[in-house]
Each structure stands twice: as C-alpha cells, then as structure tokens.
C-alpha cells in the first residue's frame, strides 16, 4: 500500500530527548508508528514517554538492541550531519532528517558518503513521510490524509499539508506522502520517488509539488515523459518570487535566470503533466 514506510517500519528517533524530538515522538506514537528506540548521547539507559521507549547512547547500540531499520533525526543543524553519518555507518537503510539549516557543504559531504554506504536519506529540511493508516515518520499532521492510491512527493512542508487536506475534502486518499525537503542538496529527489511510485502496486497516480530553484522539476518532467505510465499532476510554487532571494527555503532561489517557476511548469506540461494554478485545484485535475 505504500513506498518507503509501512507497518513493518521499526523506527528510531535521534534527538529523542529534545523538545521537538519528544513532542513528535509522542505524535508519531499516537498515530501508530512502531517506534522501537531513541538516541541521545549521554542519556543511554533512560526511558521516555512513561517508560514506553528506551534511550541509547549511540545509534549502533540502539540498532543492536532493538533492530531499528529506519531513523528520524530531530537534531540541531550543527550536529545533524554527524547524526546522519552515524545512522548510515550503523547500517540504517532509511534516514529521515527533519532539521532545517544544515550548511550546504556539509550536505555535499553527507550526500556523497551515504551513497557509498548504500543508505537512503529523505530530507533534510523536510516534514518526513506519511503512509496513512500505517506509519508516520515525520511531522505531517496525521489527521489531514486518508488511505488511498495517490502518491505525493513534495519539496515543501505546509504546502504539502494544504494539498493533502484538499484531497481529503474530496475524499481522495494517499498511498504515501514524501516530503523531500527544501534544501539545495538533499538525499532523495523527485525521480527517486517517482520511480518508487511507478513500481508500487497500490499507487495509481502521483502528485508532484515543486518550487523555484534548481532543475529537479525539469529532470522529473523528463523522467515522467520517458518512464512513467501513471498519470502525474503538479503544482509549482514561487511564480511571483523575485530573483536572487532565498524564499524561506535555502534551495528556493532563482539564480542567473535558472530555477524559474515558468520553466518548470512548461517542462512538466510538455511531459503531459497537468499543472494546477493553485493547490486547491489539484483534486479536480484527476477527475
């Protein structure tokens, strides 16, 4: 019914004793995610959330003790790269990094390292993943999406919530929603998710939510034209953004005439993708 996360996900939370880590661990637990352990160096041996989840000093110890196969990172930007390296080194297959504000050179080193390790990173600067009814690994509100056959992949956070909510109001459900994050260099990109959705038996159409900056949407368009049999609808944010400014996300910037919304929309439309004028229009593109 999904990609990347499902009922079998055994989640570990890095930075579990921090404010955000603890709050969202509770939220994920309430949603039904199988959280097996947490990591905070120096707090090994403690238990959090009324003794429900054990805390370990390192990822490796947590993996050995609890068999976690997925990690979510709520660690401040200056420590987050290390947390990702640690998770990749301990053999975690899927690493989800929520942290915003990681320096881009750190991300280039991270990205090249995890490729060597064969791990998959989602994020950073992302809301994580949601497979409605099965597992939530991230901060997407659980009550704005229902189970269904639409795959969603997005560079944004709240804009994604907006789309999920619009779908739910039309009684349209989601197989998995992946927030790939708003940084210029991230782990998993559009094409990775599109190919997973294309292979997933329970996804029959896909929504892509992009924004200004970079050329990932253009590359996705090329991929859709040549590799996708399932229909794709899209929305691109930032048509009114001025050039040379970071629009909140580090990666959302039009530079030297590159990364414009209009080019992305044109590329997608040429690939046969229906592009919505605003997010609330998306559900109608599928009917």
């Amino acid at each position: 019914m999904s990609i990347l996360i499902d009922k079998n996900t055994k989640l570990m939370v890095q930075g579990i004793t921090g404010n955000e880590g603890l709050f969202h661990t509770q939220q994920m637990l309430t949603y039904g995610t199988n959280i097996v352990s947490g990591v905070t160096p120096g707090k090994g041996g403690e238990w959090v959330l009324n003794g429900k989840i054990p805390v370990f000093d390192s990822v490796r110890i947590a993996v050995d003790a609890t068999g976690a196969n997925t990690s979510i990172i709520f660690v401040p930007a200056r420590y987050a790269p290390d947390a990702i390296f640690e998770a990749a080194d301990a053999g975690i297959e899927l690493i989800v990094c929520i942290t915003e504000g990681i320096p881009v050179q750190d991300m280039m080193r991270v990205r090249n390292y995890i490729e060597q390790k064969g791990a998959r990173l989602v994020g950073p600067n992302c809301p994580g993943l949601l497979t409605p009814g099965e597992s939530k690994v991230g901060i997407i509100p659980g009550d704005i999406a229902i189970t269904g056959n639409i795959g969603v992949v997005s560079r944004s956070g709240t804009l994604t919530y907006e789309v999920l909510y619009a779908l739910m109001l039309e009684n349209m459900g989601v197989s998995t929603c992946v927030g790939i994050g708003g940084d210029p260099i991230n782990g998993t990109n559009f094409i990775d998710c599109l190919s997973l959705f294309e292979e997933d038996l329970h996804t029959d159409r896909v929504i892509l939510i992009g924004e200004i900056g970079g050329t990932d949407e253009e590359k996705a368009a090329e991929y859709i034209a040549t590799h996708m049999s399932k229909p794709v609808a899209a929305f691109i944010a930032g048509q009114t953004a001025p050039p040379g400014k970071h629009m909140g996300h580090a990666g959302a910037i039009v530079e030297g005439g590159s990364g414009l919304a209009v080019d992305k929309i044109r590329a997608l439309e040429e690939a046969g993708v229906k592009v919505a004028k605003h997010p609330e229009e998306i559900p109608s593109l599928f009917s």
């Binding site: 997005s154 560079r155 944004s156 956070g157 709240t158 804009l159 994604t160 919530y161 907006e162 708003g182 939510i209 924004e211 200004i212 929305f235 944010a237 930032g238 048509q239 009114t240 953004a241 629009m247 909140g248 996300h249 959302a252 004028k277 605003h278 997010p279």
Partner: peptide
Amino acid sequence: MVNGAGLAMTSMDIIKL
C-alpha cells in the same frame, strides 16, 4: 503572513492569480 516557505510563496502566487 503565512507559516511555511512553500505555502508563503503559494499565497503570493494566488494573490497575483
């Protein structure tokens, strides 16, 4: 005034639309 960068850009775009 919007929460989230993507939604903030989108809100600008819709005003223009």
